[in-house]
Amino acid sequence: MPTISPKDKHLTVLNLFTTDAPEKQVSLIEEMTKIVNAAAYEGWQSSTVHAGIQSPGTANFIQWRSGEDLEQRYAGDEFKHRTLPVFGEITTSIRLLQNEIAYTLTRADGPGGTVEIGPHRDDFTVITVFGVAEENQDELVDALGEGQNWLVDIPGFRSHVVLKGLRARGLDGLFVVSYSQWDSQEAFDTYRGQPAEQHSEGRTKAQDRTRAVATYADLNTYTVVHTRSADE
């Protein structure tokens, strides 16, 4: 099963697709699963497909050996003449985000812990894309990273990953991504709905730092439906 660790030096790609109907989400997952099951691209390491819960759409968490390998995939006829046209017909937006792993936090191992992803884990997954100006990106990474260590005290929290955006297709400007795992939607909703006066000092400080530099925050929730690694 794929794992996420700050020790990993590969390229992490997060492909986010939105659509306007649940049945189109089913089609998206079917097409993505076909691609993942047939993947044999040079440098490809793993793909993990997520189905949208809050809003229709999908997320594909992909690990590549390098950016050069990914660009070879993008330059191929299959990607340009089949993959993009097929997805273009059933999506309302396509964002292909290239990232490096900046930070991980797990309930079991604390900062730097290794995060496992896959459908066997039954995680309630939350992915948030934050826009940020270039001069503020490192501050946002830190606010969302070490600034969030208080999460280990929140009931239902499992893990938290911060991805530092490098470049993207379908998204203007720089960005930072938060990828977190929870026991359930109920646990996450309880956390989000806690009144501000009950927030810990660490949470209040981290939220203030984030709001000061993030230009937008786009959140959706997911469940993992399929995964495959190159060594399987």
Rank of each mutant, 00 (worst) to 15 (best):
P155E: 08
N15Y: 06
S159M: 04
M1P: 15
T12L: 12
A21C: 08
T106Q: 02
N220E: 02
R169M: 14
G88M: 12
G88L: 11
F17C: 04
V162A: 11
G147K: 03
T221N: 08
E68G: 11
K164H: 13
G131A: 07
V141W: 00
S200H: 05
R65Y: 03
W64T: 05
E139V: 10
Y103A: 06
T106W: 00
T58I: 08
E116F: 06
D20M: 00
A108G: 14
V176T: 12
G88I: 07
E42F: 13
S159L: 04
P195R: 05
Y222V: 02
E186Y: 04
L70I: 01
E139A: 09
R211C: 06
V141L: 00
L163G: 07
K9Q: 12
T3L: 11
Y191T: 01
L70H: 04
V49R: 03
R82N: 11
G202L: 08
T221G: 10
A51E: 08
S47K: 07
A196W: 06
I154E: 10
Q185Y: 05
S159Y: 09
P56I: 02
F157G: 04
V176D: 06
G110M: 03
V126I: 13
L144R: 11
V115M: 01
L219G: 13
V86C: 11
A38W: 01
